[in-house]
Design a protein around this nucleic acid. Structure first.
Lengths: 172, 172
DNA sequence: ACCCTCTGTGTGATTTTATAACGTTACGAG
DNA sequence: CTCGTAACGTTATAAAATCACACAGAGGGT
């Protein structure tokens, strides 16, 4: 499906999270993408996992594991923490979902398919989360790492602040 | 742990964390700096707070709140979680200590006094933590934020990987 | 068909991390 | 000294994450 995967340019780096978009479509597209990628790679997108991914795509924001768990229970799945955590592990492992460390919460990946080291903008008012690209290893941090002999394997980049809506409403 | 002395060839970008240095001195200097800054700014570096800062300076790595709490108890302070969390709040608030979101743990700031948005390198093997500078708002992320109308107030930048020592030992 | 193994699921219990709520103490301004 | 506030100590509880173990179902080999 992601044959139409767009190259990530700076403009395009404008995050999905804070803008109006065709939500129905965005959810369906992403789900379909996940499905086909799993088929390709022999991964098993089981009902629980699919449900969790769907939930996270529906909300365009970070959900805690227990919020997810509640919804799973309502949907008739197991209701103990490991159920949610295992599904999340799978989804994170395979890049369908990202963990927001700052919030101990999870969001669906907005750039399905693209190899990326994600960066997030988190609104401290309304908790909206938008995903952008980052290239932390290219900047000052990368230089520091090389200088120190540190091998970067993975990066967490999370910006906290005010989203456009909240800036307007509370220009304080 | 490692008595392995590496050349202190330091390029300024190089972080303090992964190198041998005069630890005694570094602890004392930092404590003194904290004290004088608190005096200047009318902040109260109380015994608990001072003790916590000292502990974090001693270890050059991240400690969880409960590890800190244990040591506080041993030192004769209150032994309930809020004691540690309150001290940590104060220290983080005033820039003496940083929280490592990835680890839910805390490290003393390595660049006392300098206005900074810190970045961390975290060794996944030995948990060593080094602090470097970052300028996330200057790069791709900054561009994305401007494009989206997002106002960045604070950033979390944490790189996970292998520190020099662990790279040598387990080149895997 | 069968057995076997491996992965995923369901559940109870527990650990780890963090906050709420409330009374008491200590400090500084007046 | 007296008052108001900031810091502390304690009990209790919430929130986040993991452990341990049993069972179910898919696939492979025979």
């Amino acid at each position: 499906m992601t044959s139409n995967t767009r190259p990530i340019s700076v403009d395009d780096a404008a995050p999905i999270g804070f803008q109006k978009h065709d939500h129905e479509n965005c959810v369906e597209t992403a789900l379909a993408a996940a499905e086909s990628r799993c088929k390709e790679e022999g991964l098993r997108l089981t009902p629980v996992r699919r449900k969790v991914l769907e939930m996270l795509l529906q909300e365009h924001r970070a959900l805690g594991a227990y919020a997810i768990l509640d919804r799973l229970r309502d949907a008739g799945f197991g209701s103990q923490p490991p159920v949610a955590y295992r599904a999340l592990d799978f989804l994170v492992q395979n890049g369908f979902v990202h963990k927001i460390e700052r919030l101990n919460a999870f969001v669906a990946c907005s750039h399905p398919g693209a190899a990326h080291s994600p960066a997030f903008m988190i609104c401290r008012k309304c908790d909206a989360v938008a995903e952008a690209q980052s290239a932390p290893a290219k900047g000052v941090l990368g230089a520091a790492a090389r200088a120190a002999g540190f091998e970067i394997e993975r990066t967490v980049v999370e910006a906290e602040g005010l989203c456009p809506d909240c800036t307007e409403k509370a220009p304080k």
